[in-house]
Amino acid sequence: MIAPQDLLNPGLSPGTSCDTAGVHDVFARRAREHPGTTAVASVAGPDTAWADTERLTFAELDALADRLAHRLTALGVGIESRVGICVEPSVGLAVAILGIMKAGAAFVPLDPDYPAARLSHLLEHSGAAVVVAQPETAARLPHGDAELLLLDAGFTELAGEPAPPPRVEVGPDSTACVIYTSGSTGAPKGVLITHRGLTNLAQAAAGTFGLGPGQRFLQLASVSFSAALEEIFPALLSGATLLMAGYHRALPTVRHFLRILERYEVTGFEITTAYWHQLADELAESGRRLPDTVRWVVMGGDRVRPDRVLAWRESGIPLIHVYGPTESTATATYHHSGRTAPRADGLLPIGTAIDNTDVRLLDGDLLPVARGDAGEVFVAGRALAR
């Protein structure tokens, strides 16, 4: 149940235009606008120089994704096909995601650390006939009928593919990816995220974060979780640089994390509420500050400690509190602490509906609750999955 103070202004968000093109088409436009800008980089660690970091420009990423799409098309992949991705967080993961979309298919994340039984279930249930993997992750996949397409570090296997993008018409309601829930209420459920939902999320998040060219978004969540959608696509579709950290297995210590933020000149990042509490505690106890490059911090997933919120305000860095299930394309509401008068008690609301989304508080009879009463959150609009 959600208490009334947790949700601000329930109801339809202001109508804003939402791009109805495919996610990959929006990205291709950004690639034409910013061809030489770094689109994605792999974060190797706090002691790696930026000059030695593996990275791709928007033009390079777009071209590699086009070539991968041609290879997938030759394997029979097309509209509404499902293609597994078993790739570590890296520039190769961005190539795989966009290449699958450009072929008209939907990507199905396969965490290489998952048990073999879960990977087998995901492959069988999704109907993935092809899996894009790396040589080091392919060995962890269960033997099955899916064909493996391996990406090496230099993408040499794509060199002979045609350069022009494949001619595939993807509609806004086509499936862009299939994110499987944890299965806490039964068997894991595959949620069909649409291109419309992803572009809406990306554009709403970019507007809320103030994300665009010249900024660097640190990506931390496993691509198997919906939170990763809110990291990857707002960056790539806004012209910002996506930094793939690959720390989803075990987040680094706060001090290690602070060195990464400084070394890579990170503009913003998204973390769980639990890790944010650790970060806030460390900063309060040590007297340290986030690097000057950090302009905002996104977090969500649990109730926030009011005392930490009150202490955090001294940093002057806005908190963006997000809330939403996978079925709402990761996020249904935002609260931007820098744009709303703070509560004296330090409570942090989950905010207001994101663009083109309708959020209501209803009771057990699906009727609006009375002012001041708790209720269940209901979501409608472009953000909903199929």
Rank of each mutant, 00 (worst) to 15 (best):
V95E: 06
A44P: 02
C86E: 06
H335G: 05
Q134R: 13
A240K: 00
G186K: 06
E54I: 14
R167Y: 10
A204I: 02
L64N: 00
T357Q: 08
A374H: 01
A227Y: 12
Q203N: 09
S90G: 04
M299A: 14
L310M: 05
A59F: 07
D145C: 13
T272V: 10
A103M: 14
L61I: 02
V297P: 10
E33D: 10
G324P: 14
V40D: 01
A153H: 13
T38L: 03
L68N: 12
G246I: 13
E270G: 09
L64A: 14
G15P: 00
P162G: 06
L384R: 12
G171I: 09
V132I: 14
V298N: 12
G171R: 14
R32Y: 09
V223E: 08
C86Q: 10
V294T: 02
N9W: 11
A31R: 00
R82M: 04
T20I: 11
V130T: 13
V87N: 08
T293L: 02
F233W: 15
E314Y: 03
L362A: 07
L211T: 01
A129W: 08
E80N: 04
T329H: 12
Y323E: 05
D62G: 03
A380F: 10
G316R: 00
L261I: 00
G351F: 06
I354Y: 02
P35V: 05
G212S: 09
P164Q: 14
V254H: 12
Y334D: 12
H248K: 06
D373Y: 09
D358V: 05
N356W: 06
A274C: 09
V130M: 11
T181L: 08
K102V: 03
T272H: 07
T53V: 05
R259H: 04
P35C: 04
G84I: 04
D358I: 02
L98E: 02
R55W: 04
L151M: 11
T73L: 11
E231Y: 03
L151A: 10
